[in-house]
Amino acid sequence: MTASDEAVSVRLGPVDQIPVGEGRAFLVGDEPVAVFRPRSGGLYALRAICPHRGGPLADGLLDGEVVMCPLHNHRFELASGSCVSGGDVDDVAAYSAEDDDGELVVSLVAP
């Protein structure tokens, strides 16, 4: 575990532990983070807890743009964490996630 510029950055093991098209939850320091691996490519990290009612975002369905919380179908942009489903729900924090030669690296900084 290394830290730089006060941001926690963690190597979390092989990217392949996340099935393509799904998300999995990790702990980065004290922060629960859901990392998503859409079929269209890329890695995205959001705080793992839905700001609406605490749903597990890592269990949500996703496409190339958004993840949908399994509890009430609120949708959040993978890249920014913005809630795009209406109904006055807060955005969720977005973090940086990278594929470092097959290894997943998440930093608690904005992507």
């Binding site: 392949d16 939850a25 629960p32 859901a34 793992a48 605490g54």
Partner: peptide, 13 residues
Amino acid sequence: ATPGQFHDALPLI
């Protein structure tokens, strides 16, 4: 069926 199929999605809670 998939890696981490039954992994906790809300760690720490």
